[in-house]
Design a protein around this nucleic acid. Structure first.
Lengths: 229, 229
DNA sequence: ATATGTTTTATACGATTGTTTAAAACAAGC
DNA sequence: GCTTGTTTTAAACAATCGTATAAAACATAT
């Protein structure tokens, strides 16, 4: 795992190559299923029908392949989320916007991607959680690169929808929203634990129900600046 | 990593042994810092001033050491949370209880443990996130063992505080609460990302602020059965 | 057909992994 | 002092890891 120094002076574009694409597809699929450390480059090569050396050839070290895998999963989802937010903002360019719509622009594309997505973005929950748990500089780098701008745009829209709220509170609550959403999206990969402990009351395999419960909870949490008991 | 079959027919009590305790302490400390896979049994043995074979002697395979490490971190925190909830329920044994107090009984001990705790429970956020990301049966086993009863007790208390809410919604929102809390508790290990992106508006190193923002958000989210726009 | 540049392959290297074995060190009872 | 049972140790095992090397296969252009 420790890169000697060089590791990969030469990395191809990796985009306009069939095998490079197959390698990358296999990478985030296997990573999402078993974790970065538990999947070897040999596993990925075999799953992609390629030679292990082809991974070094196209991506360099394993760390760079992990970085690319994260990017491949998060970037298309962020495009969907920003498009949804753009729709909300464009619907009423000058006037006020509803906080429900802003929250939904984050939650709906994300939940649908994880439940019924067909592209790389369907691995969002697992890949993001794995990135969160790694805590290494080269991972933080790509995580920040993928989320800083998204966060600022959404908080700005939240502030536009709730002009009376101060910005600090909205930053906190954006983080809470992401945390709640990520956690419930991981439930299916935990054998639908919430469904089990709730005695079947919560259908964590139904995206519409997840979206509805999440949006209602988050919006209520954002609506009142202060709770009076 | 693959256990041949036997691995450890004989495992000592592991409690009443100095070296076993040192090994376990080193285990969850190093695990929390670097992750289960990235820490080798040799790393743990060295940090504990013991021999690698002593780990097999006391704990068996690495998987069992991981299980014990998770238990050692979660169990004392759960005791604190249940004690706090017990206080809330005992304060008014027959009459109504406040949802604020129930939510705080979960959030306050957890956040304080992670920020200023001195026992194993201070590693809660990292260890739990690592457990979440592993997705293996032997991990799920100990996770469920450590949280099922806690969840039922808290949802019951939430229902007592909010008799008008149906149980399904409360189960959803318990999960949202845990997700939001866990996510914000991981922020310090991400170089205080929220503080950075908020331009210093959110002090994610201040436990009181984290508790206050979390409790307010979660309680608001639980208070109204349905949000009307 | 020959030469050139790119992609893929088989193979090997050194390092590290979890775990086992068997001997050494230690403690307690008599 | 010897014996018995427990703990600790050094050493080795087989397996797997990420990565590098250099030759083979392929494609393209002349």
């Amino acid at each position: 795992m420790k890169p000697l120094i060089a590791a990969s002076e030469r990395t191809r574009e990796a985009a306009d190559s069939r095998t490079a694409a197959r390698i990358l597809d296999s990478a985030f699929e296997l990573f999402a299923a078993r974790g970065f450390d538990a999947v070897s480059v040999r596993d990925i090569a075999e799953h992609a029908g390629a030679n292990p050396a082809a991974i070094s050839y196209y991506f360099g070290a394993k760390e760079q392949l992990i970085q690319q895998a994260i990017r491949s999963v998060i970037a298309p989802l962020n495009a969907l989320r920003l498009a949804a937010l753009g729709d909300v903002l464009a619907r009423n360019p000058e006037g006020p916007i509803a906080i429900d719509d802003v929250v939904r622009a984050m939650i709906e594309p994300t939940v649908r991607a994880c439940f019924t997505g067909t592209g790389p973005e369907r691995y969002y929950a697992r890949i993001w959680m794995l990135s969160l748990s790694l805590r290494q500089p080269y991972i933080d780098e790509v995580m920040n690169e993928q989320t800083d701008e998204l966060l600022q745009r959404f908080v700005a829209a939240m502030s536009k929808a709730l002009p009376d709220r101060n910005l600090a509170g909205l930053y906190w609550e954006y983080d809470f929203m992401i945390g709640a959403m990520l956690h419930i999206l991981l439930d299916p990969s935990r054998n639908h634990r919430l469904r089990r402990v709730s005695g079947g009351l919560c259908d964590t395999s139904n995206p519409d129900e997840v979206i509805s419960e999440l949006v209602n909870f988050v919006v209520r949490g954002m609506l009142l600046a202060r709770h009076v008991p």
